[in-house]
Computed example of a mutant assay.
Amino acid sequence: MNTVNVRNIEIGSGKPKVIVPIVAVTKEDILKEAAEIASLPADVLEWRVDWFENSEDLAAVKDVLKGLREVLGDMPILMTFRTKKEGGEKAISMQDYIDLNVEAAKSGLVDLVDVEIFSGDDTVSAILDGAHANGVKVVASNHDFFKTPDQDDIVSRLVKMQEMGADICKIAVMPQNRRDVLTLLSATEKMANDIADRPIITMSMAKDGVISRLCGEAFGSSMTFGAAGKASAPGQMNVETLVQILDALHQAL
């Protein structure tokens, strides 16, 4: 598998890298949380722009990104606008979605952007092309907050992301029971070992799925999410506890 290098982080080797999200509303609170995260054992900061009160204002978004870069130093920044249809705070037109991600990439202030793979192939391609032209990596994603698809369906969604050219392929699903968690882990192992030529990120959400956020190194998921303040999805653990568990599992493996 090819790894992805972002600043001083190599994604796809060793322990799963830890992403910590910010879901604050105001610039002041976003930068305050970022300063706290900068002192934590996190690898990547995810800014959830859909929570930002001025997310429709590209100048305001770039202003926050500039502040984040100053606060975070060399920590990589993943910028994500999670749409309403995939569990985010706001709806957005596809043209605005493209413009937001491409302009952020052009700014030189972000290292990765997230694109939802089922936003339409033209939209996805426009963001991929715009990001890659500016040296920014792309995380293609899909989120199902209602169910866990079967193994083949999970794998096929990840394969679509890889075939479209995403640098990292991510899926998050909701378990209805613990057997669903096993389905997610089985799909992860199959994709990582038999198909993927780049890093993947998988997780099963909520309490039943917590184990999937911890065992990525064993099954093939290259990154995981931990919470410093408010969690951005159900089942995220405190980042410091998460890192302790990841360290222990890494030593055992």
Rank of each mutant, 00 (worst) to 15 (best):
E56I: 08
E56Y: 15
D57A: 09
D57N: 15
D57R: 06
D57L: 10
L58F: 12
L58R: 11
A59Y: 14
A59V: 08
A59L: 12
A59D: 15
A60V: 06
K62Y: 13
K62G: 07
K62M: 14
L65S: 08
L65N: 11
L65M: 14
L65I: 11
K66M: 13
K66C: 12
K66A: 15
G67F: 06
G67S: 08
G67I: 05
L68K: 06
L68N: 01
R69D: 00
R69H: 04
V71C: 06
V71A: 10
L72D: 12
L72E: 09
L72F: 12
L72M: 13
G73C: 11
D74F: 12
D74A: 11
D74S: 14
D74P: 13
M75C: 00
P76V: 07
L78K: 09
L78C: 10
L78M: 11
L78V: 07
F81N: 08
F81T: 02
R82S: 09
T83V: 08
T83M: 13
K84D: 10
K84M: 14
K85I: 13
K85F: 13
K85D: 13
E86T: 13
G87F: 10
G87P: 04
G87H: 14
E89N: 08
E89G: 03
E89H: 07
K90T: 04
A91H: 12
A91V: 03
I92E: 05
I92R: 12
S93Q: 09
Q95W: 08
Y97N: 08
I98Q: 04
I98S: 04
I98F: 02
I98T: 04
D99V: 01
L100G: 01
L100N: 01
L100P: 00
N101E: 07
N101G: 02
V102W: 06
V102F: 05
E103S: 06
E103C: 02
A104K: 06
A105P: 00
A105L: 00
S107N: 03
S107F: 00
G108M: 01
G108Q: 01
G108T: 00
G108W: 02
V110D: 03
V110G: 05
V110F: 00
D111N: 07
L112P: 15
L112E: 05
L112C: 12
V113M: 08
V113I: 14
D114F: 00
V115E: 10
E116Y: 02
E116M: 05
I117K: 11
F118L: 10
F118K: 09
F118V: 04
S119W: 06
S119F: 05
G120M: 02
G120W: 02
D121K: 04
D121E: 15
D122G: 03
D122L: 08
